[in-house]
């Protein structure tokens, strides 16, 4: 069985410039790193590995230099890795990206797919849509925003997901896809010893020619219906509220606030 972890190389800092004419992120000369949410995806895979007796495959899509984060995944404990890279994939939106990743996953494991794990979103695109769309292309069930995994075996996962108004406790059959939230596990740090041990481990490159569906119109800019009008950095909003009242009133208000925002253990939990 294989666990596929989808990872992405993103700019190293939050202060990335956007080209005012093209509206595209200026990536040249900017330090890069693994998408922070993907660190949680990697750690989740490593935590599930024993229970599922699985091989961990790190998968990324990007230009050749994105191979760097596959090396990083090796330093965390991934067994093998693949880079989906082809000029014909350039300019892909979430739909084309999901289709590309689905084809790549089929190429990597035609029969023994266990779990696909993604971070809940990336810190550059911020759409949080690729995970769910990828599951649709793969025709497997999925759960987003997973915050806990209670139980895992080679048939199913029991997990907890963070929904807008409550948390849900779910059981999902394998093969499946999950996108994981920050804090599900504390990601381990890359190991220097593993770096030395994996320095000559190969990274498979996957191109359009490896896919079942080789129609170039389905990929890259050609396969992307999204037309970007403008890209701008998200606004940083800090909301401050002041409350006044007696100690008892304030305590009640605070309890209510914590409950509504799901800060209290077991409050608002539903089993599904």
């Amino acid at each position: 069985m294989k666990i596929i972890v989808c990872i992405k190389q993103v700019p190293g800092t939050a202060e990335v410039e956007i080209d005012p004419v093209t509206g595209v992120l200026k990536r040249d000369g900017v330090a890069s790193k693994m998408n922070p949410y993907d660190l949680y995806a990697m750690e989740t895979a490593l935590q599930l590995q024993c229970a599922l007796d699985a091989e961990i495959v790190a998968l990324t899509m990007g230009p050749p230099q994105a191979a760097k984060i596959i090396r990083e995944a090796y330093m965390m404990g991934a067994d093998s890795g693949a880079l989906v890279s082809d000029r014909r994939f350039g300019g892909a939106d979430v739909l084309a990206t999901s289709r590309t990743l689905a084809e790549a996953i089929r190429a990597i494991c035609p029969s023994d797919l266990g779990v696909v794990i993604c971070g809940k979103q990336t810190t550059d695109g911020d759409t949080a849509q690729v995970g769910a769309e990828l599951a649709e292309f793969l025709k497997i069930p999925h759960v987003a925003n997973v915050t806990k995994i209670h139980k895992a075996d080679c048939h199913a996962l029991e997990l907890e997901t963070d929904l807008p108004l409550h948390r849900a406790h779910l059981k999902i059959a394998l093969p499946c896809l999950v996108t994981v939230d920050k804090g599900i596990f504390e990601p381990r740090l890359p190991s220097y010893k593993k770096m030395l041990a994996t320095s000559d481990r190969p990274i498979r490159t996957i191109t359009l020619d490896d896919f079942d569906d080789r129609d170039p119109l389905h990929y890259g800019l050609n396969g992307s219906p999204t037309k970007v009008k403008r890209i701008f950095p998200p606004e940083h909003k800090v909301v401050r509220e002041s409350w006044q009242g007696s100690g008892t009133e304030l305590a009640g208000k605070l309890l209510n606030y914590l409950d509504q925002n799901k800060f209290l253990q077991n409050a608002g939990e539903t089993n599904a």
Binding site: T13, K33, P36, L189, S191, Y192
Partner: peptide, 10 residues
């Protein structure tokens, strides 16, 4: 071992 913290998150 020697574990590497090379990003702000790490």
């Amino acid at each position: 071992d020697a574990l590497i913290a090379d990003t702000p998150e790490r």
